[in-house]
Write a protein that binds this DNA or RNA. Structure first.
Lengths: 134, 134
DNA sequence: CTTGATCCCGTAGCGACTACGGGTTGTAGC
DNA sequence: GCTACAACCCGTAGTCGCTACGGGATCAAG
């Protein structure tokens, strides 16, 4: 029985996530609880693998757990919600843009400061000076 | 007594950090334990304010707590360690560069996918399709 | 039927805070 | 001096998204 189904280990491997992470997703309700063998081991159907891949991909793209919950709800084929999904992605994109801008500032500042150090033989280290400022 | 000194609230405000964060920094040994009033309230000297500003600035630049510990040690005027500090900043810069590259990929992918949504009236949402892929 | 890999569950830890809550102290106005 | 009330005290728990641990049960191959 359950011959075509996956153990948690195989499922995790097939989606490229940690086994413990799958249990975690189940605990927080992101993955549905699967069937169990007589001995109590989890037995996953192909849909579970699909769901897990969806989650992993969303995480890779930087969506948070709550966002993924909403994306899953919106991805049901009965709901025609491309606009909502697009807006969520757009919001996410906006926050990524902001993060990028932040990092760009840091990058520039650090680069300049490191450059000012030259060979590192200075008495007053420019990096320390920068950190001490403000 | 301690008339020129700061309460934890004023210190926090002057450095632009949360009061609880100051207590946290003390607990993990990042801020030295200050003198106390007879009633047990913390009483900070100006050096504490300087230290806290140094920490906040370092955090803003993305250094982790352990890195800040090292930076503080290296910032003692007796140690001539500009080269070490520069190397730490350089390492940090490298990891920022990596993060930027990651974000850039996400940004491009999300931008394209969102653009594909158009007015959001599609039956198959390009964002969902993208998340389902792989 | 034994071995060894895999899985079970609950709990604790990570980093860097933030929040809560019940009690104490400090201070300004009267 | 007394009364408000803000500010502070401390310990603990929660946040996010996992990851690790450990002792025991189960599964699959030989």
């Amino acid at each position: 029985m359950f011959r075509q189904n996956l153990t948690i280990g195989r499922l995790a491997q097939s989606a490229g996530v940690n086994l413990e992470t799958v249990r975690y997703y189940e605990r927080i309700g992101l993955m549905p609880a699967p069937a169990r063998t007589q001995g109590g081991h989890r037995s996953y159907a192909p849909e579970h693998a699909q769901r897990l891949r969806f989650i992993r991909r969303s995480r890779e793209l930087g969506f948070g757990i709550d966002a993924i919950r909403r994306l899953i709800a919106l991805s049901e084929p009965t709901v025609q919600s491309c606009a909502e999904v697009r807006d969520m992605a757009q919001d996410h994109l906006t926050s990524i843009d902001a993060k990028m801008a932040d990092l760009q500032r840091l990058q520039a500042l650090l680069r300049q400061t490191v450059a000012d150090c030259g060979d590192g033989r200075q008495i007053r280290c420019p990096v320390i000076e920068e950190l001490g400022s403000s």
